[in-house]
Simulated assay, not measured.
Amino acid sequence: MTSPRVAFAVMGSLMSIAFLILVNHLTSPGYLWVIHPAFAIIQWPIAMYFAASGRLKAYSAVTSLLIILYLIVENLSQSPEHPWFLYPAFAIIWWPIIMYAGRFAGTLRMALIGSFCIIISYGALNLLLSPQFPWIIFPAYVALWWPMSIYFSRSRKWFEYALCASLLTSALFIVLNAVTSPDHIWAVYPIFAVIWWPLSMHYYAKRPPI
């Protein structure tokens, strides 16, 4: 019952891609736009095959590889002077990594390793490909929430979580202020709003019983 569906998906995809190739050649041979719909169409038989066999981990690996290959083709055809595909590629490979990690994916150790790898990898990309602006502060800020959230949620230290998150967010604003506009101190405004999170939790815990 499953095999005919997969075969139909394969034949339907091949016929659709062949038709689009013909249309691309007849209407605009100077621009190979067929790769965009072809990439989407080919996901149909791939998803059908791996869903039928229950191999979801393998599906994540194959699909991630195809997405990265698609980005490489786009990069080489549109802007070969700058390898921008590396920026989304590292984020995409975390899908199969998390899938194959299984139960380990939800551990604090995995969060620490993952956030460290994210910061190091994007930091290297920032330094090598676009050193004009330290944009690494943004993915680093997001990555640090991963282990921080797991640690404090498991220990149920909600005030400490709010305090650390507020300090992390304040540090982001301070660094961003220093990098973008050091002559104008604007970071105090969002920091003032952020510190109300741990303050409200502290005074809520200290409230007198009703």
Score class of each variant (00 low, 15 high):
Y204L: 15
W33I: 01
L144V: 00
M148V: 00
W94F: 14
A178G: 11
Y161M: 01
A38S: 09
M110F: 08
C117G: 01
I137K: 00
Y151W: 14
P134A: 09
Y204W: 15
L22F: 02
L172F: 06
A187L: 08
W95C: 06
S121L: 08
S181A: 12
T63L: 09
S79G: 06
A178F: 09
P96G: 12
L14Y: 05
M48Y: 13
F8R: 10
A193M: 12
A52Y: 05
W158R: 03
I17V: 14
M11F: 04
M99D: 14
I17P: 07
Y31T: 12
V194A: 03
P190T: 13
M11A: 05
P88F: 03
S170N: 10
Y70W: 01
M48E: 15
L163Q: 05
I118V: 13
L199H: 03
I68R: 01
H25R: 14
F138E: 03
P134F: 02
S181N: 13
A61N: 11
Q132Y: 08
I150M: 00
L65K: 12
A178T: 10
V6C: 07
S64L: 06
A178D: 11
P45K: 13
I210M: 11
P208K: 15
P29L: 13
S155L: 06
I46T: 11
I67M: 14
